[in-house]
Amino acid sequence: MQGFEHLVRKQDGQPIRYLVVDDSIFARKNLQRILAMFGGQVAGEAGDGRAAIEAYNRVHPDLVLMDVTMPDMEGIEAAEQIINHHAEARIVMVSSVGYQENVSESLRKGALFFVQKPPKPELLYEVIKRVLGDAAIVVAP
């Protein structure tokens, strides 16, 4: 397994806190496993868009990984609502359906990146690093 330098918050050196949103427990566990490789901490989980909004308000994560197709409220709508109330929110969409329409709409609604499932750890790492920008620093594990 590839080793990754850990990403931590620049402001306090603490692990990056993630909110993982997916209706599949399997997918959430897979993302958790990958984020652990980056030294991250899953601060919250949600299984649909509505729960994601509630979870965001509760945990104020550094970054959200959001599925698109979910029951109750889909990911793109949830992303839009989160960003409407928290302009600073950083949201990366993670979906198996990566055709242009989905990608464009996600970015139009305020998501910062779109990653197609299954997420490749090395790609996700680079995306997270880029999205966090100056808010994160890299440290040895």
């Binding site: 599949s24 197709t69 979906s95 198996s96 359906v97 990566g98 055709y99 197609q116 499932k117 299954p118």
Partner: peptide, 10 residues
């Protein structure tokens, strides 16, 4: 199944 069909449809 979601990943395979989603990738194929993409």
């Amino acid at each position: 199944a979601n990943m395979v069909v989603g990738n194929a449809v993409t």
